[in-house]
């Protein structure tokens, strides 16, 4: 799919910076919540076939904890905060004193706490993005699912689905101790949102 007519490389760089700023703020928020350093990898921006997107988090059948929210406003899109099970357990234990579930049976309270954490992080991602671009962007109420990655992520691909079989993903990995992945931030702007983002940032279309 040919998403950008001109300067595709430069535009991808701009989107990487968008991910950098958003996820940087979210990482700071997470670090404050956990009271310990949280690093992030340099965001990757790629146009990927639908199935390859789930490969980023272990494949279509890998069970993940995901908080999904829709970005509304000037540049709509889909956002996922995907957290691996082990860090989720540590967050629940460390932050809230829960003895998190050993199996995959999370209590209502645990799910609600994870959902709220996702909400805080997504909010900080988006508000920094809104400041940076001057665009109005607001998150919907987040929704959480613990399920197969393919089933979850396909929700973020519907807007791209009518255009082709690839989607543009801005992926930032959170790291703990400089190595192990804690989770991912996925931002999948709607296809129509790219021109608005570029215009707001002064990038020639």
């Amino acid at each position: 799919m040919n998403l950008f007519k001109n300067d595709a490389d430069f535009k991808m760089d701009v989107l990487r910076e968008v991910g950098n700023i958003g996820a940087g703020n979210a990482a700071t928020a997470l670090s404050t919540l956990l009271n310990k350093p949280v690093d992030m990898a340099v965001p990757t921006v790629s146009l990927l076939p639908f199935e390859a997107i789930a490969e980023r988090v272990g494949g279509t059948e890998a069970v993940v904890i995901a908080i999904f929210l829709r970005v509304e406003g000037d540049a709509p899109g889909n956002m996922f905060f995907i957290i691996n099970k082990e860090p989720a357990r540590r967050i629940l234990q460390g932050l809230l004193g829960f003895n998190a579930a050993e199996n995959d049976n999370y209590s209502e309270l645990e799910l609600s706490a994870l959902n709220e954490i996702g909400n805080i992080l997504a909010g900080s991602y988006l508000s920094s993005l809104a400041d940076f671009t001057g665009l109005h962007m607001s998150p919907t109420v987040p929704s959480l699912a613990v399920d197969m990655a393919g089933a979850i992520l396909s929700y973020g691909l519907l807007q791209f689905g009518t255009m082709g079989d690839d989607a543009l993903l801005i992926d930032t990995t959170f790291l703990e101790g400089h190595q192990e992945a804690e989770g991912h931030f996925f931002l999948i702007p709607d296809p129509e949102s790219f021109d608005k983002l570029f215009r707001a940032l002064g990038v020639p279309l």
């Binding site: 789930a54 494949g59 279509t60 059948e61 399920d147 197969m148 393919g150 089933a151 992520l153 396909s154």
Partner: peptide, 23 residues
């Protein structure tokens, strides 16, 4: 069978698609 994909099978072969959500 991948996402947004289709296929046929015969001779005892299995068809499989993974991670259906709203699909």
């Amino acid at each position: 069978v991948g996402m947004a994909d289709l296929n046929i099978a015969e001779g005892g072969a299995m068809l499989r698609t993974t991670g259906l959500g709203s699909c």
